[in-house]
Simulated assay, not measured.
Amino acid sequence: MSHTSKSFDQDLSASTDLFLEMGMLASNQVAQAMQALLESDMLLARQVVEKDSAINQLEVQIDEHILLLVAKRQPAARDLRYVMAVSKGVVDIERIGDEAVKIAHMAQQIAKVNSHTYCYHEVQHLSNQVRVMLSNALRSFEYLQADSAFEVMRSDNEVDFEYQSAIRALMTYVMADASQISQVINLMWVLRALERIGDHARNIAELVIYISSGTDVRHSDFATVQQAVADAGKADNDKDSAANNC
């Protein structure tokens, strides 16, 4: 985003950089937690838990940036929406970090019993989908791409479907081999954590559309979201036309 005030631009850019840094850290935490689970790596799982404090510290740092920015600059219109979106988005990212910690804890529990990769296919498949969804959400925020954010929102339905399918598959494993019930329950908690990460990624995507269009699309149907994305595209085109006519 570009503004008439260079100092405001710098302040906002600093907050955005911290936001994206926090997002990448949380994304890496999810990836490492899943690696710890799949490889029964208790050391890596412990490192994921220990690194959660870094995400929490970034949340505090970003909150301080936002508070000072609002106090000094008193942003309005789209600038204010952007600042509010960063403030809300850090909450989702912090919770993604929390879900990564939950996965790491489950990885430790499973590794204590054995290193058998029973039922892992369903978990790994959902993990891959969710991590792509999170990566796309962060990228759409970085470049303020409302259309890409809309695709992230649509993909959340696929994640929800896969989550339910994975739960059913795990229940089938339990019925076939009741001795695995403890491990399956732990994996169900992992699936739940992954599904929630997908929800937080969707929330970040909704914030992108809010910034771009001015429409709060939370709890909205896809027709409403699609119209907001179209409005965002029209606003960007009008801005480009005005710039070219100057």
Rank of each mutant, 00 (worst) to 15 (best):
S5V: 10
S5A: 10
S7R: 15
S13D: 11
A14L: 13
T16M: 06
L18A: 09
L18M: 12
L20K: 00
M24P: 11
A26D: 04
S27Q: 10
N28A: 15
N28Y: 14
N28V: 13
Q29P: 09
V30E: 02
A31P: 06
A31F: 10
M34F: 01
A36D: 00
L38I: 10
S40G: 11
A45K: 04
A54G: 08
I55R: 01
N56Y: 08
Q57N: 14
E59G: 02
Q61E: 14
D63G: 09
D63Q: 08
H65G: 07
L68R: 15
L68M: 15
A71D: 08
K72C: 09
P75E: 04
A76I: 10
A77F: 00
R78L: 10
R78V: 12
R78F: 10
L80K: 02
Y82D: 07
Y82M: 07
V83N: 01
V83R: 05
V86K: 03
V86A: 09
S87C: 12
K88E: 01
V91A: 03
I93A: 03
I96P: 03
A100N: 05
A100W: 00
V101Y: 03
A104T: 02
H105P: 11
M106V: 08
M106I: 06
M106D: 03
A107R: 04
Q109P: 07
I110Y: 01
I110G: 00
K112D: 03
V113K: 12
N114A: 13
N114D: 14
T117N: 12
Y120H: 14
Y120W: 13
V123N: 00
S127C: 14
Q129K: 09
R131G: 03
R131L: 03
V132S: 12
V132P: 01
M133V: 08
L134W: 08
L134C: 11
S135Y: 15
L138K: 00
R139D: 15
R139E: 15
E142Q: 07
Y143T: 14
Y143N: 12
L144K: 05
L144P: 01
Q145T: 07
D147Q: 13
A149S: 06
A149D: 00
E151I: 13
E151N: 15
V152G: 02
S155H: 08
E158K: 12
E158L: 10
V159D: 04
D160G: 08
F161V: 11
E162H: 13
Q164I: 09
S165P: 03
I167D: 05
V174R: 09
M175P: 06
M175K: 13
A178N: 13
A178W: 07
I181R: 09
V184W: 03
I185A: 09
N186A: 11
M188L: 13
E195N: 02
R196S: 05
I197N: 02
G198V: 00
R202S: 05
R202I: 04
N203A: 07
I204S: 04
I204H: 02
E206I: 05
I209E: 04
S212Y: 03
S212W: 04
S213Q: 00
D216I: 01
F222H: 10
A223H: 09
Q226F: 07
Q227N: 15
Q227P: 11
Q227D: 14
A228C: 08
A232K: 04
K234Q: 08
K234Y: 03
A235W: 04
D236V: 14
D236Y: 14
D238L: 07
K239G: 11
D240I: 11
A242H: 11
N245Q: 14
C246F: 15
C246N: 15
